[in-house]
Amino acid sequence: MSRVMPVLVVLLGIVALWYGAAVAMNAPWARDQAARAGTPLSTGQLIAATMVQERPVLPAPHQVAKGLWDGIAGQKITSKRSLVWHGWITLSATLAGFAIGALAGAALAVAIVHSRVMDLSIMPWAIASQTVPILAIAPMVIVVFASAGVTGLVPKAMISAWLSFFPVLVGMVKGFRTPDRMQLDQMHSWSASRAQAFFLLRLPSSLPYLFASLKVAVAAALVGTIVGELPAGATAGLGARLLSGSYYGQTIQIWSALFAAAGLAAVLVALIGLIERVVLKRMGLAR
């Protein structure tokens, strides 16, 4: 209970602030409407009117909740208005991109740790790749792939891999390098091969770092996929919901999609956390 309380208090505070902001931001439009109709509103009526608008500047929390519920449970999941359907489109590209990115990051980290030339030549490029604004790169990736006849999941997965390989690369390089001089000397004194030193020492040493970086990477992969969905013609995926919502001023739809994406990210990160707990416990690293 003592752990739930602070969370609840913060949550309540946010919801209260949100309602306040919704009233303040939606009031001008309600007043405008009332003035046009010539029926002045009491304060109570004004507040009520800010809660039920179809295209509010800031939808009230319960409107977003209803939008989310409609999107998730109120539609057949094959419907184009279903958040489950859009969520799946986004999730599949995210997972594909995450898998590619994590594997590429880990593979590059192995190369960097074992070869000084790779260390000097790859790292600057890896860092440079992350300084390029993804918003600028994404449309180009989509266009290039589309011109080659590849659309749908693959180009989005490439963008999400682009964002997710980096945290894994950095985390794993750090992780593979945690064994100290003494531990490496120890391996040498047993005449261990490089492969043995890697699999018996470096890899298990790096696992805590691996999981930390996978959590960052999976969230980044989701962002990458959503960004990749924006220029794709906005037909499918949570990114598409965001974009079409903003085309038509459907703020409730935007916020619902936003929360769906946040929820998806939370689930993915929690899932990795769970795997982390199980693996570290089985290794005897969790106390």
Partner: peptide, 18 residues
């Protein structure tokens, strides 16, 4: 070293926690 002539004990135990 290759013919396992010696065992080396370092300053720290260097046991693997896992």
């Amino acid at each position: 070293r290759k013919s396992r002539a010696y065992g080396y004990v370092f300053q720290a135990p260097g046991l693997y926690p896992w």
